[in-house]
Design a protein around this nucleic acid. Structure first.
Lengths: 136, 136
DNA sequence: TTCGTTGTTTATAATTATTCTAAAGAAGAT
DNA sequence: ATCTTCTTTAGAATAATTATAAACAACGAA
């Protein structure tokens, strides 16, 4: 499933050549069972840890942005000093534990259908994101 | 309604002494009919324009943060380079026009009730925010 | 009032996430 | 192989936000 061939396909679909560095990024991003919430910095550090190889920060930014643009990553709307991304690109939402700065998945069923009863002429809905902030 | 006395009350409630600068900030923030979406930089510029007096950027940051903490301002969860705030602190949501970088209010009725069917032990819900991104 | 304390303003420096740059290197096509 | 095009990288540039510390203003008690 999450083999090198898969990574290469994702990269090519994103108009990126499959380089060693990008494959390493994919390894950390997509070779996992569960959804993965991360910041660029998290990812940057994990690459070193998990693959033993260093990838420059600029490459991490570029690759993540290309994946995001292509829809392989989802940006999570939180006001934080850092931008959070999610490898789960299916329709779902999040809890955000403000104190611990941690994200928790909310299945779509946990929130129920959201019907937007208003529309703006000439515009269509791109995404609907629910963020539930948690406190103690 | 939005008189100087009101501003002073808001400031005192936020543990801030009512200074000329802070009153000016209040003037721009709260002396209006409609909801007001802004970034710190927007506000900073409007103060100069509307009151003719300059307030330092640091004071704007401090005051906005105090009001936010006290609940007189709401932070709007968008991933943007700048943080957006809202003077409407009632329960409501937003459209975000990604291309034009503009926020539009969504009344609570426009979205319908959102019932969160999941809970995290020891945590309670602080807020539920819906962000609807718009594209052309 | 006046004085002393405490809080505030301000310009500026520091910090930090993100983007840009340009030179050296790698991938792909012929 | 070779040439072109894309990529990587370190480091610089940018920009939002936060911290600093000196001059100043609000407050309350005498």
């Amino acid at each position: 499933m999450t083999s090198k061939q898969e990574f290469i396909k994702k990269l090519r679909n994103s108009s990126l050549r499959p380089t060693k560095q990008r494959i390493n990024i994919c390894e950390v991003l997509f070779n996992r069972d569960k959804t993965f919430h991360f910041t660029i910095n998290d990812l940057f550090n994990l690459i070193k840890d998990k693959t033993g190889e260093k990838v420059s920060l600029a490459t991490v930014y570029n690759t993540v942005h290309a994946f995001h643009k292509k829809g392989y990553l989802k940006e999570i709307p939180i006001n934080s000093n850092q931008t959070y991304f999610d490898t789960n690109v299916t329709d779902h939402h999040h809890f955000y534990d403000v104190k611990e700065e941690k994200l928790i998945d909310l299945k779509n069923e946990d929130v129920g259908p959201i019907e937007i009863q208003k529309s703006i002429p000439g515009k269509k809905i791109k995404s609907v994101e629910v963020l539930v902030k948690l406190e103690d």
